[in-house]
């Protein structure tokens, strides 16, 4: 029998593997933020005010490069545009929740909670407390991110192979995406995105990310239509 707290803890437990990639990222951010001239307080609070992994690193790098403040803020927001897609993707599961829940869960929508959350919603292990699942995953990830930032700020030594640990983020997503690829349209979407992600690198503000995503979605959709694959939950 699923209960509110059992779902809360299950969400937190399921998001744990993601910390392997997210934690070093937070460390890097903490160190970079201080190096870019932010005070410890500013660096630490950015991880809750913005709460956006790579975009925080973009923030401090642009900031230290002397880019006009308004442009910095706007660039960060553009980098985070992909969250609109995540939001749309989860909307069918979230939209009937009370407003307060939707306001709260929105704050915790990140790459990791999205990937993990979508997996959960698509699985057959649903209950009426799935919002608690998502909340649990969000709180756990948030906490890990705050702790990592604090450690980074306090000057934790960067582990020599830290770039290998951020590779862990890719591994996490590989683990989630690989089993999802079943139909021809899935393959087409994936390959298209991969190619576009490489070709569109020169675009500013990490626009390549959302552009590659869109391209892949369109191709996948088109192939799905051509081959009459029908819906796939």
């Amino acid at each position: 029998m699923a209960t509110k707290s059992s779902e809360l803890f299950r969400g937190a437990k399921d998001i744990l593997p993601h910390h392997l990639g997210v934690f070093p990222f937070g460390l890097v951010f903490g160190v970079l933020a201080i190096a870019s001239g932010l005070s410890p307080l500013e660096a630490i609070l950015m991880s809750s005010i913005v709460f956006g992994g790579a975009s925080q690193i973009v923030f401090v790098q642009l900031w230290s490069a002397g880019v006009p403040p308004f442009i910095v803020g706007t660039s960060v927001s553009i980098v985070n545009l992909r969250h609109v897609l995540y939001s749309a993707s989860l909307s069918q599961y979230i939209k009937n929740l009370p407003l307060v829940w939707r306001l709260i869960l929105a704050y915790f929508l990140t790459d990791q909670t999205y990937a993990n959350g979508l997996n959960h919603y698509r699985s057959n292990q649903l209950s009426k407390y799935d919002h608690y699942y998502f909340l649990g995953s969000g709180l756990a990830l948030w906490s890990g991110w705050q702790i990592a930032t604090i450690f980074g700020v306090l000057g934790a030594t960067i582990i020599p192979s830290e770039w290998s640990l951020t590779f862990a983020i890719s591994l996490t997503f590989i683990a989630i995406v690989a089993p999802m690829i079943k139909r021809f349209s899935d393959v087409a979407a994936c390959i298209t995105t991969g190619i576009l992600a490489i070709i569109l690198q020169p675009l500013p503000w990490k626009l390549w990310l959302i552009a590659a995503g869109f391209g892949g979605i369109l191709i996948g959709w088109f192939i799905n239509y051509l081959m009459k694959e029908g819906k796939n939950k």
């Binding site: 989630i176 995406v177 999802m180 899935d186 995105t193 892949g216 959709w221």
Partner: peptide
């Protein structure tokens, strides 16, 4: 296709 493409 959002997760398949964005995560890829």
């Amino acid at each position: 296709y959002v997760p398949i493409t964005m995560l890829t």
